[in-house]
Design a protein around this nucleic acid. Structure first.
Lengths: 215, 215
DNA sequence: CGACCAATTGAATTGATTCAAGGTCCGTGG
DNA sequence: CCACGGACCTTGAATCAATTCAATTGGTCG
């Protein structure tokens, strides 16, 4: 559960996003820190500080209500930057999903760094507004379908989606129960839209059908 | 339905937010433009450009699905700045709710402006993540209660909330139907938590009870 | 193998929606 | 001034999607 500290990595990983490179150009990145599964990267209420770059593994950013309900705001994969938060205190907390390597990013040249940070914050804002639509106006079937399509876009393969997180995480991300996640996946499987060779792997047979899930 | 153009205003209005003043210091604001009720301020897909400052009235920022379902991302009152959007195209559209005066804000001193813009984008991000929690994990009762409390904080009065938007708008903001909005308001009234002297006015009798609405 | 945790599946329940009337408010024109 | 029309809001009853509760299955690790 505890975060273990850094070990040297194979120089800079392949980072999808050109914006990340722009950010790094004006940053002072630390060594990679390894966070074992379910360990906390930053806590809710903690002082806001640096940004974080995922080198490998998966990270979830969450909010928790007083009575223990959890909403996962986002998942982050290798190449993603997270840690944005308004104000001086984190309104959310970040945890490693599956054992993740994370690099801490601090500004080297503050103004240039701030410019890149704005770009990335705006991208984050866009994503979270996409998610508002999903949570506010989509059925369970649509939520799962959109989730699979989103992961498909963000991963290398054309038809395979890896699910490093468990059903419970998916549920808390999509605003449903984990039983519902299970049931909807079953429906998609029965309709031959996806295959489920193992619990953490989805093979998409018919991406068009996923995009056209009704209601 | 059409936006009418500017008329001179009584200099700078009282703007709640010190951040807005910081932004304006590095901006080149236009005259106030009046948008009649339900007129479009910017459209989805339109080129991203300036920010907008609400001088009076109310603005809603929305997203629409292909089949006509609408999610309202945010409401903006006098003193609020909106128009943030990732990328070069607006992913959302903004409309006047009730006839609103809006000032267009363009950068004068770009780098300083960018710095202030980052701050405000981060605040927006925080708000939208608050809203994710509401949409993903709250019951209809909790959503309405949270909505009333949010408006209460943002308005001058200690116990009166004006509702410039109609039930349908509230519903699309909270991810429920307008009938549900009506019914929940009735429940709160019957429990003597609020009064409804008219359709666009809520008087809060027991803010504590609102904060403690269960499940 | 047995223990444990995650995932699946089924059955009953329920919160919210859908569908269907009414009611209220307001502007307009006779 | 009042009647009419239309838009919005409220309320009721039936329906349904998703949850809750309850087993059962599957997978992993000591």
């Amino acid at each position: 559960m505890l975060a273990q500290t850094a070990f040297p990595t194979t120089s800079s990983t392949t980072l999808r996003d050109p914006q990340v490179h722009a950010l790094l150009r004006h940053a002072r990145p630390s060594a990679v820190i390894f966070f074992s599964a379910n360990s906390v990267i930053y806590a809710q209420g903690e002082q806001t500080g640096p940004l974080y770059l995922v080198e490998f593994g998966t990270v979830r950013v969450c909010r928790m209500t007083a009575d223990g309900r959890r909403q996962i705001n986002s998942f982050h994969y290798a190449g993603d930057v997270f840690g944005f938060d308004g104000g001086t205190e984190h309104q959310s907390y970040a945890e490693s999903v599956d054992g993740a390597g994370v690099r801490v990013i601090r500004a080297a040249e503050p103004t240039a760094f701030g410019r890149e940070m704005l770009t990335m914050a705006l991208v984050g804002l866009g994503r979270s507004q996409e998610h508002l639509l999903l949570l506010g106006r989509m059925s369970a079937n649509e939520r799962i379908a959109a989730f699979i399509l989103d992961l498909l876009e963000r991963q290398q393969s054309d038809d395979v989606v890896m699910l490093p997180m468990q059903r419970n995480d998916i549920a808390d991300y999509l605003g449903v129960t984990f039983e519902t996640v299970s049931r909807v996946l079953r429906v998609l499987k029965d309709r031959n839209i996806i295959r489920l060779p193992s619990v953490d792997r989805i093979e998409v047979c018919d991406a068009g059908a996923l995009a056209n899930i009704g209601r």
